[in-house]
């Protein structure tokens, strides 16, 4: 019972942190503050991954998301002149009025399904997360792993093509 309660306390703390930062990401006005709230969301996600026993994924979340992607966003934001984007900061009010009740009802429906549903039976036991993950990734999922490198190469070429100046 005691261990269970500790799990719930950790869940409530991390979940509140995650949801508050996600709401901040959506509703805060300035793009720099949006990026900071997004960084806070990513840190909360990494902590939740650690709690759920996905250590390798937590580290990769920190390295790829919290370093590479966030720095990419900040670099792009610094190239944009501030006085010109003041005009379209913020959110659409009428769309918010229409969308938020619909999405809330959708959330209630999906949560009801999850609460009423049953989980599948466990089929295995992960002893060493990183070892099992690496073994599975380089045996069963070797071909998708190689294809992922092609996806990254294509994305790199596309970004260079899109980002260069027209002659």
């Amino acid at each position: 019972m005691g261990e269970d309660r500790v799990e719930w306390i950790i869940f409530v703390v991390l979940g509140t942190w995650l949801i508050l930062s996600a709401l901040g990401t959506v509703f805060v006005k300035s793009p720099i503050h949006v990026i900071l709230f997004f960084l806070s969301t990513l840190l909360a996600m990494a902590a939740i991954f650690l709690v759920l026993g996905a250590e390798l994924l937590a580290g990769i979340q920190l390295i790829i998301y919290a370093v590479a992607i966030v720095v990419f966003y900040v670099l792009v934001i610094t190239t944009i002149p501030w006085e010109k984007i003041k005009r379209f900061e913020g959110i659409y009010k009428s769309e918010l009025m229409v969308a938020s009740p619909i999405l809330f009802i959708l959330f209630l429906l999906m949560s009801y399904m999850v609460v009423k549903g049953e989980f599948a039976q466990p089929v295995g036991l992960v002893k060493d997360n990183v070892k099992d993950l690496g073994k599975e990734l380089f045996t069963s999922y070797l071909f998708p792993f190689e294809v992922a490198s092609v996806i990254l190469l294509v994305a790199m070429i596309g970004a260079i093509l899109l980002g260069r100046k027209e002659e």
Binding site: L23, G90, L103
Partner: peptide
């Protein structure tokens, strides 16, 4: 699910492309 729907709400209501 809550995180996904919050992100979806952000796609709908934000003005800035970034």
């Amino acid at each position: 699910i809550a995180l996904f729907l919050i992100g979806f709400l952000g796609v709908i209501v934000r003005k800035n492309l970034i």
